[in-house]
């Protein structure tokens, strides 16, 4: 679940949320072509075409509760991420994501502010299946593979390690409806439990992200359509091998134009069974994408 709000997580778990898909039908949901049809916390099986770049800038705010490791009351996390995706071939793209993070931990009314650069994520997305059934409808599946590497930051924001991850994402566009389903596994080799806000500690993690996008306008495309509004809803589940797991719901709105898109999301907890890291309280996110 791209509990990215937290430190280096950002890079690692969101990895390609921004770009995402692999279809494992039974597992999940799906989308189309330039990081398009992609909600904030779930990847889509879309990618930039050869020689085309997509820059995605996002801001996330996350509020976490008491930290069982440090005893702090709560933590506010502000994260700015820059994702660059580039089309290497018609079915292969490369992405690079850098998260800059600010964290304010409050303990007995005393603020402890810190900032740093989280792990840098490098990922390949390879589309293995495409079935375009009419001018609009399509089903795509892509495989995801990458690694998040230490940024060199020593202020608790980098895991100081190299963490491979693999996944798959499927995207389906059916008229006004879009579905993305992503499954992602992270082989975490480093990270400190004290700084784990979800998929940032030393334990492996499994993410299962589902997104539904409903095109609210225009109802029907016309020859003059140059943009579309979507309502989005995501279910983001994160399981860590230390047995911590939580499920979040992320409603939002998104606009996609011909060369840009922007998005606004909220994130709320649905179920949490976490003992080794702070509980998630809520989050908000906004972002913009530009294709060139």
């Amino acid at each position: 679940m791209r509990h990215k709000g937290s430190t280096e997580i950002g890079s690692r778990d969101r990895g390609w949320k921004n770009a995402r898909l692999g279809l494992l039908a039974p597992v999940m949901l799906g989308a189309s072509a330039a990081n398009a049809q992609e909600a904030m916390y779930t990847a889509a099986a879309t990618m930039p075409s050869p020689g085309v770049s997509v820059i995605r800038e996002q801001f996330h705010y996350y509020r976490y509760g008491s930290n069982p490791n440090t005893g702090s009351d709560h933590t506010d996390q502000y994260e700015f991420t820059t994702l660059w995706s580039y089309g290497l071939d018609r079915a292969l793209s490369l992405s690079l994501e850098v998260p800059i993070e600010f964290r304010n931990t409050v303990d007995n009314d005393i603020d402890d502010r810190d900032k740093g650069v989280g792990d840098i994520d490098i990922m390949l997305k390879y589309r293995v299946y495409k079935d375009d059934t009419n001018a609009i409808n399509t089903l795509r599946i892509a495989l995801l593979g990458g690694v998040s590497v230490a940024s060199g930051d020593d202020h608790d924001f980098s895991s100081q390690s190299v963490n491979p991850h693999i996944g798959a994402v499927a995207t389906k566009v059916w008229g006004r409806h879009g579905f993305n389903q992503e499954v992602h596994y992270y082989f975490n080799t480093g990270g400190a439990r004290d700084d784990n806000y979800g998929n940032q500690g030393p334990d492996d993690a499994l993410e299962l992200n589902s997104a539904y996008l409903f095109r609210i306008a225009p109802e029907t495309y016309t020859s003059t359509t140059s943009g579309a509004w979507y309502l989005t809803a995501e279910l983001n589940w994160l399981y860590e091998t230390n047995s911590d797991n939580d499920l979040r719901i992320s409603p939002g709105v998104m606009f996609e134009g011909r060369r840009f898109a922007f998005e606004l999301m909220a994130q709320l907890p649905v179920y949490q069974d976490v003992e080794e890291r702070p509980k998630f309280v809520f989050g908000i996110g906004m972002g913009v994408r530009i294709t060139f």
């Binding site: 072509a33 398009a36 049809q37 495409k130 609009i136 994408r289 294709t291």
Partner: peptide
């Protein structure tokens, strides 16, 4: 006549190419 252009941003790939 093209199949699979599900959204405006998706279609941007086509005119670029």
């Amino acid at each position: 006549y093209v199949n699979g252009m599900g959204c405006p941003l998706c279609a941007s790939n086509l005119d670029i190419q």
